[in-house]
Design a protein around this nucleic acid. Sequence first.
RNA 1: GGGCGCAUAGCUCAGUUGGUUAGAGCGUCUCUCUUACACAGAGAAGGUCAGGGGUUCGAGUCCCUUUGCGCCCA
Length: 909
Amino acid sequence: MTEYQLPKAYDFKSTEPRVYEMWEKGGYFQPSNDPRKPDFDPAKKPFVISIPPPNVTGELHLGHPLFVSMEDLMIRYHRMKGIPTLWVPGTDHAGIATQLQVEKALAKEGLSREQIGRDEFLRRIWDWKEKYGGIITTQIRRLGASCDWKRERFTLDEGLSRAVREAFVRLYEKGLIYRGPRLINWSPGLKTAVSDLEVEYSEEPGKLYYFKYMLAGMKGEYIPVATTRPETILGDTAVAVHPEDERYKKFIGKKVIVPILGREVPVIADEYVDREFGTGALKITPGHDPNDYEIGQRHGLPVLSMLDREAKVTEVGGPYAGLDRFACREKLWEDMRAAGLVIKEEPYTLNVPRSQRGGEIVEPMISEQWFVKIEPLAKAALEAVRDGRIKIVPERFEKVYFNWLENIRDWCISRQLWWGHRIPVWYCADCGGQTCARTDPLLCAHCGGKNIQQDPDVLDTWFSSGLWPFSTLGWPDKTPDLEYFYPTTVMETGYDILFFWVARMIMMGLEFTGEAPFHTVYLHGLVRDEHGRKMSKSYGNVIDPLLVMDEYGTDALRFTLLVGSTPGQDMNISEKKVEANRNFANKIWNAGRFVISAIASLDDRGLQTADHRPSSTLHGQSDWTLADSWIWARLQQLVRAVERLFQSYQFGEAGRQIYEFFWSDFADWYVEVAKLQMQKEETRQQTVVTLARVLDISLRLLHPFTPFVTEELWGHLRRAVGQNAILSYLAKDWPQALIIAPWPEPRPEEGWEAGKTADFALVQEIVRAIRNLRAEKKVSPAKRLPAILVGGAKTNLLAEQSPVIAALAGLAPAQFTIHRLLAAKPENAITLVVGPVEVHVPLAGMVNLDEERSRLEKELSSLQVQIERLEKLLASDFADKAPPAVVQRERERLDSFRETAEKLKAQLG
RNA sequence: GGGCGCAUAGCUCAGUUGGUUAGAGCGUCUCUCUUACACAGAGAAGGUCAGGGGUUCGAGUCCCUUUGCGCCCA
């Protein structure tokens, strides 16, 4: 017999790395049914998740532990169910973010990327990736992620680059990719175009500038115009008014003079103009405003670009050429004031477009870029969700998804960056033709000339991310992985990237594979600080998950994130919560320690092992005590609830219920009763069996939530049970590790549960009532109290449970009697009424008759209220219309209240 | 402007087919180092479930509406 000397507190620091290594070395992260292996069975349906790839050189923030915990939970659950599972890990090259990091490092050496050139810059960025690229995946391992690292991918690796190239060429050949000058969002600091999604609008205080648009050839007549961006006057090509606006109708078709520049532009009529806003007349700058651009298109207006790629005024701006956009605004306005064209300025709240990255003000401008013609893709993507091929959880996000796709605009996919997938198009200097090819061409496809040059731009990072679920499995090749694991099962990610990523994956998946890339989209909320504020460095409320794990352990962090969240809802996190769950991990550990020591203490002295196995599979019978039956019934109830909750993605609620069961039912009650049962020879073995079985199943249920502590403890349990001559039969089917132990399958009730549960609940109530009395009367916990119980119909139950009641309530066994009926009320005793049971506690010298009387009266009166309420309820329509079971339950409650009230009345005499 | 979410104990939150007198963690108060755990145990206090209206035998839960906060889209 081996003695188990487990540390008094769970030591996550030494456990976590060791356990993770054991899993990884044991090959448990690989699918149990693998198309790359000979015994592969294509008929088994796998469960597959592709990881939302984190930025390869990024830092771990709380968003990562959240998605890792969620996905790992789903993966572990399915793995334990025996389903072949694959979780594909990987990282994203994160074009802008990574390039900026390296540029920043370069700047410290006083260099710019232009100075060192494209090739050298790319070499450095790859060095950077090699140096820092492993950090994030190491951190994800630390979170316990059970993904198949053998299948790890990177968006810029060879295979994925080929996928990107294939995707681009196919869209190009289909005419769904085009290049052209369009109004795009330009980021002057980064000097690249960005997509509509990468622009965020923020409300900021600004001004509305009113000025005069003088009419050409009509002395002194003018149209008053208001604008938030006076500098764009330099690019105006019209003034628009509403066709029915009485004020300005007469000017339609006339010309007005652009201030300072003196150009003449037409006055046009367009229904877009809002007569209520500003002066009701709108200056039109098609080159620098999306709405104006559309109006310009409608009216065939010329488009002027008055800002260059650095947001400085171009020659279009005449005297202002070379000025920065903001300096120009001031100078022009002052000049206009001097020219008598200014009317007034008003404070006004602007909606300023800012770059999602860096926050600089984005400039709408005309630029030659590549676009994806999105409408046909969007249509298919809408259909896939509408007809249920893809389900979004929570459902309300389907509406958001529809709304976005229904109003989607073409996607600008070219970026003026160097880090990314280069656009596979070559321009011919001889014939001007474009050559788009899967492999780098040497000759122009049109004229055969050698004078071709590749487009310098790269693709939006999300273009490659959109291919992720299938590119990671080998697409465009028909690899065995792709055949078997695609489409994937669940896409789990934050709702903040529903458009950026999820919608695009759906569009691309349908386009290139003909299938929805996943069946279910599960969207989680965002993690905020304990008061619901967004975490930000400037605010100083950022919680670093690494520090949290250092202090409280990974399981505590995971459990906090999993249990603290509801689908699609933001969650607030605080260290306090993590600490509470660290305590839970410790609770698991210690309850386990107790069970293991109980097993170790059970030897085979005088016991014939074979004969002492439970003969019946029907539980709650024969050699089972009430507590054994109760905890088993509760556990089975829990297994059923957890199964139901998992099916509906309510992982948080499932975790809470397991927590409740483990701490309140198992540790607080059953373990305490078990201590007693183990002292008796006849119940000892059955108790240890129950302890072992309940712990085993509990650990299995908890494993997806808190994998480390459960794996470690289960290992000890397995060894202890396996080495025990009497109990080893219990573990005969247990595998090497908990990670692959079978998930507890829900089984139907057997019929005995309700009765046993009610009986145990009565015992609990009696114990609580006595404990309460002790606390109220300030009786020392060490003092054993005498007691007289009057049980009526429950006398047999009380007699059988008397040792339990005595032990848990601190009664003195020698002075503790049970009666069916009692002729006279004991003297000098305090009486507690618990349902059908009376508990008389003689407390010499502590009984104040008046106090007792008023206590009983108070109890009686609150009972009367309940009785009246129920009598009224049962006399109403309720009795006819409510389901019989509900009515029956209320009737029983009323009976029990009446019984208690009668007893109280008798006491009061 | 359109859409969505939230409002439940001092704080942070659960509460998904509507069904006991609404739960948890933290915090507060009282007691206890009882041989798994003081990262603990026992007990207690604390809520007109934002306001109003409706449906129903029955509403924290469903419908309408008002107010406040937050988010997304334009």
